[in-house]
């Protein structure tokens, strides 16, 4: 492979310095899986529509399947694996468990990270805002009502 097709990226991954040798065409989700064995971000629809591959880049939610790995050079990346502190689940994760907000679980990390971004931006969203914000994530098991409840519970959302 041509030298210019390859590069080294340095970034922060879940708070720790990370380095990876990548090819220019590789996506963020591929590199997270291959080089860091992180599988919380996972590719499903491959078109940025289902949200399974969500990662936070500099605090902003992106679709890891449409995001070139090269573009996280110098950035801070967070995946669902970086959310808990030690053995203590993040309150969002706890709320998803308490509200049974998943079935097969494949979409769950994406929903959790979208919720993280939502609550970072709006700590007390209305139910409509929650639904609007999470409308770009798909759950084929259709745990949607429970997901909304989980976000409401963790944010103290009022019903509208």
């Amino acid at each position: 492979m041509k030298e210019t097709y390859r590069r080294t990226i340095r970034f922060k991954l879940n708070g720790r310095p990370a380095i990876a040798e990548i090819a220019t065409h590789e996506t963020l989700v591929e590199v997270l899986q291959r080089d860091f064995s992180l599988f919380g971000a996972r590719e499903s629809c491959g078109q940025g529509l289902c949200g399974c591959c969500t990662a936070l880049v500099n605090g902003i939610a992106v679709s890891g399947c449409l995001y070139l790995a090269a573009f996280v050079d110098g950035a801070e990346v967070m995946t669902v694996e970086g959310l808990a502190s030690g053995n203590e689940l993040h309150p969002i994760q706890q709320s998803f468990v308490a509200n049974c907000a998943f079935q097969c679980g494949f979409c769950t990390p994406g929903f959790i990270l979208m919720t993280k971004e939502l609550l970072d931006r709006h700590p007390h969203p209305t139910t409509d805002e929650i639904r609007h914000y999470l409308s770009g994530n798909l759950c084929r098991c259709a745990a949607y009502p429970d997901i909304v409840h989980a976000v409401e519970a963790v944010s103290g959302a009022r019903k509208v």
């Binding site: 995946t79 694996e81 959310l83 308490a98 679980g105 494949f106």
Partner: peptide
């Protein structure tokens, strides 16, 4: 609650 709850919210569930 589902036995595998924690694994499904912290990214560690095995698929």
């Amino acid at each position: 609650r589902r036995l595998e709850s924690k694994a499904k919210v912290d990214g560690s569930a095995e698929y």
